[in-house]
Computed example of a mutant assay.
Amino acid sequence: MRGRPTLPALAVGILLTLLAASPALASSYRYWSFWDGAGGRWQYATQGPSSARPADGSVQGFRFAVSKDAAAEAAQPRAAAGFAAICGSTPAVEGRKRVALVVDFGLAADAPAGEAPPQEAPRTACAQVSPDATAAEALAEVAKPLRYDSAALLCGISGYPKQGCGEPMADAEPKPAQPSAPQSAAQDPSAQDPSDGGPSAGLLVGLAAVAALAAAAIWQSRRRTR
């Protein structure tokens, strides 16, 4: 006959369950993300700008922001992905291709310390380049200077930002408030969601229960030894 779990075993089981259920502290990054424009919408690019070779009539987007390095959570360019609106007035030339580019320098809240976006609204341009040109080469035609790190990661467009490249930022770190934005829960420490930082109320209660079970186990073991 199998015995019932002892109090110490129950305590360990509860603790492991609580630790497994508690969310891990993820990180976001401050970086230039790269996007493909398709059907008027943005899709997170599956290749880097140095390897992607867009076809004539393509739309490519770049967005600087603090966001997660994932398609579902990265910040998209804030301008529409429309080729006609950007390159419609640029005539086609034989032996060249046209690539519509959207460069979004992002928000002041995402800027590195001591810097600010060169302009508030996204910049659009039509690059006319050779048929085998990469997206990075098309970008260089309209938004120099570009800055790369030793791993060929795109770090700066048109000189912005001046330094830094994909540095991690803790998700729990509050972003600076935008001058025109209303105060929000993420900016007001007194109104923050408990899940945004520190242990949750449920986790604290669970840990207290584990401590109580452990104390009971010690008391029970002492009774048995008397």
Rank of each mutant, 00 (worst) to 15 (best):
A100Y: 07
Q192G: 10
V129G: 03
E137T: 11
G40V: 06
M169I: 15
S28V: 07
T6K: 10
F83G: 13
A138L: 08
A108S: 14
L107H: 08
R2M: 05
A208I: 06
F64Y: 13
W42Q: 01
L25P: 13
G40H: 02
P194E: 11
S58L: 02
V99E: 03
F83C: 12
G114M: 04
Y44M: 08
G156Y: 07
Q183T: 13
A151P: 03
R4I: 11
D56E: 01
K68H: 09
A65C: 10
D193E: 09
L213G: 06
V103A: 00
R63A: 15
P194H: 02
L146P: 03
V93E: 09
S190R: 12
A71S: 13
L16N: 02
A108D: 09
A20V: 14
L204H: 09
A20Y: 10
F83Y: 14
P174E: 02
R63Q: 13
P8K: 04
A181L: 03
G13S: 11
A127K: 10
S221E: 11
L7G: 11
V12K: 06
A80L: 09
D149H: 06
Q47L: 12
A125E: 02
L18N: 06
E73M: 03
A79M: 02
A121R: 15
P5W: 04
L15W: 14
W35H: 04
A24S: 14
Q119G: 07
S58P: 05
A65V: 07
A177K: 15
R224C: 06
V12S: 05
K97R: 09
A75T: 15
P176F: 00
A214I: 10
D188L: 05
A80V: 13
A201N: 05
Y44V: 07
G156H: 03
I157D: 00
P199G: 02
A191G: 07
P145D: 00
